[in-house]
Design a protein around this nucleic acid. Structure first.
Lengths: 347, 347
DNA sequence: CGGCGACTGAAGGGAATGGTTAAGACGAGG
DNA sequence: CCTCGTCTTAACCATTCCCTTCAGTCGCCG
């Protein structure tokens, strides 16, 4: 599988004929035909068959077309970016778990780039367990997310008993973790959710026994089920699985639906202060909650770290950063905005 | 630039030494060294220099490491996916503009996959002008977004006067457009925003002259400034630019901030019915609004289209689809959820 | 200074890749 | 059936890749 071969296939898939592809690539038809034949051989898939008015991709061909276009595009893009790296305004790629990417990172970065206007930043949302991997692969400069949930019962912590040759990973000590915010996760619902037969102790909060958790309707944002996070671990531990969960496009959307009375959610306590005060949401009294945890920023150690990453690591523990996290989120100035990118993980 | 070379460089960047990389790839050190040397030559960048306790990547090296890891991972992933394409449950990739990806596509897909449980789907959020491109590259099966805003003043419409050899694109008629929903965009604010000195005509809605639009504070979701969409075009036409805009992680988050009284936003009228009824939001009376537009689904013509894409195209115009779009969004069942992926465009 | 570990360079060879031209196979359409 | 356009195959060649072994060079540390 070669970049040239992929380019040829993309052209064929796009233009619908070997001849047109050859013309557009300025090579002969057999060159294109041969490249495709090589791919066919290697992948064991006909990729496309001739059909009326052009070609029809097989399912495998469709997948290859998508992947190949991506790969070829990325290769071009990477070449270009490396070439013009000399002129770089320093660049910062932040990886975070989905809820953090949505609710924590934007205010943090907003106040950070206000102090460092020369820094361009972008955010990647990923499952918690690949945060470290992204750092090691240099696909991200800083990772932000909760410290892993402590193992619930027994078990020997994180000793992984790996006695093999270990030609794989560099020492995990290459990554440095910097806790910067303790948080509390609480279960919230609309106050009128009480109608569902919850027990109320006098004037106190609504009570919900643990056994009922799996039978409730949970409204969550993407990534909140991730068992590698304290919140996801809590839900998994009490039997809340995909069957009783609806996923919304964003954590905020899920909370809105909760406020509308559609179900329960799990959220950072300090993010819903206003809603609690206004009575649009209420905290449920559930054994084991609030779930305590700590957010941390991670980066490679020392000189393997880009300057912008060092600056952000210094920044997260400052009072200014804390202030930005606790005040209501204000959005990011239009000029600096880059949308969060969800990265699919190829382990 | 070869996949093998990139693999070698990734290993070096990750493990911090040529020797370790060679060991892990099970080749000799000169093999790795040579691969890196080839990249250095081609890209004109030292990529890394030796430093205390290992290596230090140059800025270009950092960019290459990120891109190379991505490319290599994608290549593996693609190979795997093509190989197991035989067993595919049909797969549907939907591309949409960001607001649609967040607010329109989820309910649509939710009711679609309920009728076609065998279909796996994923969503890509992209700028409006690349929707067609994604279809042609087979990187998406169906594109959903607003029909382009009509050119405001004179101009000859979409005639592009391209008289060159044109060995580039297949005929644009390869893509078929299917309008399925008329929409109205309105400007909303919190009712108490009236305090900002807006003129109220008797009991009627709040009035806002066009000249004040650029001086207001706009709270938008990602992609709402895209001038290739009717909403973005409206804002651009009246001088609303990045300076007066704050971007939130999601359209929903922006609307929440509007309800909190922080500024103005632009939204689909039918999505805020509840908020208007409850009085948490109010529509402003602004000349030129509501902005009318039509959402459409696009796909390749005929036999170049995957079965799942055909099914979705048939589905969007059914009453069931319309119902799902007009009812309040309910989230997606956990088992079917794949997060929206934001695609960066390499034109 | 000597030794040592780590990286780079220089041949060298086998196997691809990537390209060409020329000729055959195949389907659509008269 | 014949023709035409299109794709594939075949034969062939230059180049590059990719890996090897062997011989340095460089820098660190005792």
């Amino acid at each position: 599988m070669t970049l040239t071969q992929l380019r040829a296939f993309v052209a064929v898939a796009r233009l619908g004929s070997v001849k047109a592809a050859a013309l557009s690539l300025r090579v002969s038809e057999p060159a294109v035909s041969g490249a495709v034949a090589a791919l066919r051989r290697e992948l064991g898939d006909p990729l496309f068959v001739r059909a009326a008015g052009g070609i029809a991709l097989t399912p495998g061909g469709r997948r290859l077309a998508a992947g190949a276009a991506e790969i070829v595009g990325l290769a071009e893009e990477t070449r270009r970016r490396v070439r013009e790296a000399g002129t770089e305004t320093s660049y910062l790629r932040v990886a975070a778990t989905e809820p953090s990417a949505e609710q924590i990172v934007p205010p943090l970065l907003e106040s950070f780039v206000r102090r460092h206007p020369e820094v361009e930043s972008s955010t990647l949302a990923v499952p918690a367990r690949v945060l470290t991997e992204l750092l090691l692969d240099r696909r991200a400069d800083v990772a932000i997310g909760p410290a892993p949930a402590a193992a619930p019962g027994g078990g020997s912590g994180d000793g992984d008993g790996d006695g093999s040759a270990g030609d794989q990973d560099p020492a995990p000590e290459a990554v440095e973790h910097l806790p910067f915010l303790k948080f509390q996760l609480v279960v919230v619902a609309a106050p009128r959710h009480a109608g569902a037969g919850l027990e109320r102790a006098g004037d106190g909060p609504l009570r919900l026994p643990l056994s009922r958790l799996p039978r409730e309707h949970w409204l969550l944002g993407p990534g909140q089920l991730d068992p590698a996070t304290p919140g996801g671990a809590f839900l998994a531990r009490h039997g809340v699985g995909e069957a009783s969960v609806s996923i919304f496009p964003s954590t905020t959307a899920a909370l809105n639906a909760v406020a509308a009375g559609d179900g329960l959610s799990l959220t950072l306590l300090h993010l819903v202060r206003d809603e609690l005060r206004h009575g649009t949401l209420t905290v449920l009294d559930i054994p084991g909650t609030p779930v305590n945890g700590v957010l941390r920023a991670s980066a490679l150690r020392g000189d393997r770290r880009s300057p912008a990453a060092s600056a952000l690591c210094r920044f997260v523990t400052t009072p200014a950063a804390l202030r930005s996290l606790l005040s209501r989120s204000t959005g990011v100035p239009g000029a600096h905005f880059h949308p969060t990118v969800h990265v699919s993980l190829w382990s």
